Measured scan of single mutants.
Amino acid sequence: MTTFKLIINGKTLKGEITIEAVDAAEKEKIFKQYANDNGIDGEWTYDDATKTFTVTE
């Protein structure tokens, strides 16, 4: 398992979430669903070196 981080830079929601997953593709799906469930629609980036997804509205 690898630890992945999501950084949220939303208009109404900001924060960080850290979760373990098998791979980045699995985690991306979970993070995007979390963002969608919380009304966050923005630009996504991924840094493989730090295993960090960022979504910015």
Rank of each mutant, 00 (worst) to 15 (best):
G42Q: 04
I40K: 01
G15W: 15
E57Q: 12
M1V: 11
A35Q: 03
Y46H: 00
A25S: 10
D41S: 11
G39S: 05
K11T: 09
V55N: 02
G10N: 04
Y34P: 00
T3S: 10
N38I: 13
D48R: 03
F53S: 05
N36P: 02
A35P: 01
F31S: 00
E43W: 11
E28W: 15
G10D: 02
K29G: 06
K27A: 15
A25R: 07
I7E: 02
T18G: 03
D37S: 06
K14M: 12
D37Y: 07
T2V: 12
Q33E: 08
T18D: 04
F53R: 00
E43F: 10
I40G: 01
D47P: 00
T12D: 06
D23V: 04
L6N: 01
K32F: 09
T12Q: 08
F31Q: 00
A24P: 08
Y34M: 09
T3Q: 08
T50S: 09
A25K: 08
N9Y: 12
I7S: 01
E43P: 04
D48G: 03
T3E: 07
T12M: 11
T18S: 07
K14Q: 09
G10F: 14
I40N: 01
Y34C: 13
T52S: 03
F53Y: 07
K51S: 04
W44T: 01
N36C: 13
N9W: 13
N38D: 02
I30H: 05
T12S: 08
W44V: 04
K11Y: 08
T50W: 02
T56W: 13
L6R: 00
F31G: 02
D48E: 11
F53H: 01
Y46E: 00
A24I: 13
K5P: 07
G42T: 02
I30N: 02
A24C: 15
Y34A: 03
I7W: 03
N36M: 15
Q33W: 08
I17V: 09
Y46T: 01
E28D: 08
K11F: 11
T12R: 08
G39Y: 07
T18V: 10
I17P: 00
D41L: 14
K51C: 12
K27H: 13
T52F: 04
F53V: 04
T50L: 04
A24T: 13
V22T: 10
I19R: 02
D41M: 11
I7Y: 05
F53W: 07
